[in-house]
Simulated assay, not measured.
Amino acid sequence: MKDLTLSAPLPAREIRRGPRLSAGQRYFLLSWLVPVLLVLAWEAASRAGLIRAQVLPPPSSVLNTAWDMIASGDLFRHLGASLLRAAAGFAVGGALGFAFGVLTGFSRLAHALFDRPIQMIRAIPFLALLPLVIVWFGVDEIGKIFLVALAVFFPIYVNTVLGIRQIDPKLLEVARVAGLTRLATVRRIVLPGAMPSVLTGVRYSLATAWLALVIAETLATTSGIGFLAMDAREFLQTDVIVLAIVIYAVIGVAADALARALERRLLGWHPNFAKEAQR
């Protein structure tokens, strides 16, 4: 006879559930917890009268100011000017930093000729160079791009040289035994091995680029986020000043996220970055 007994109900743990967040998604949401709590506490303290609006306006006031500037088009005009300067300076400084880093990393002669002067210039603060930049380029766009390019050059240069010098000698020996040419060794072993350090330099240079841009936009100019903040200071518009600071912070987060995405794409072969990409 056939077994007519009813099948036992499924255990509770086997009941199908909806999609769950991955570990990477949970940590991403957790990373925004503290900033959100700080903004909420800031708004609450402002509404309670603990923080005067003239000293630090509430986030709602800053948001209204941003909306008004978006409606008038002023915010996009200033933001576009700053982004163009940062992009141009990053392209010039990054290309030169990588080129000189590869040159001094591979050649002891180039290292002896160029490294010490580069390190001496790297130690000079941007503010000390500002009067000389004005003498050289005036107050035109070239001077601002020059300061950004100079700020970008050094992190990429230092990390490129460091990455090349830290290549495992055993890998170079394997390349020699395998009969790889010098060009093939550089392309298949040296540059991929140095890439984590190079991309670390890119992340640092993205931060220093905006730092240099703030200084550069204090020169005689009529556009840019730095100009927006300096102009607002003259009229004691603290909401505009705070808005400029928030824009810099948002751009910094976006630039860092872009650098991380670049790392995951270019370093998919690396065990550490491969694990991060799978999360």
Rank of each mutant, 00 (worst) to 15 (best):
A44F: 14
A259H: 15
R85P: 08
A151K: 09
S22F: 06
G93N: 05
F146W: 10
L171M: 13
L243Q: 04
S107P: 06
V39Y: 10
K144T: 15
A66P: 08
I245C: 12
L172F: 09
K275V: 15
F100K: 02
A88N: 04
W210C: 05
Q54V: 14
I241W: 02
L199C: 05
V39H: 05
S107R: 03
I70G: 08
L130T: 08
A194Y: 03
A48V: 02
A194W: 03
I142D: 02
L30K: 06
R47Y: 13
L266P: 07
H78Y: 00
G18A: 14
A249I: 10
V202Q: 00
H78E: 00
R26P: 00
F76P: 07
L162W: 05
G24N: 05
Q278P: 00
F76Y: 09
L109T: 14
T208E: 01
P117V: 12
V240M: 07
K275G: 01
L103V: 13
A232P: 08
G252N: 09
A254Y: 01
F76W: 10
D256M: 13
R122V: 11
R85M: 06
I167Q: 01
Y27G: 02
A151N: 10
A261Y: 15
L21Y: 02
T200P: 01
L75G: 15
I251N: 03
W42S: 12
L96A: 12
T208D: 01
F273I: 14
P59T: 06
P271M: 05
A149G: 13
R17W: 02
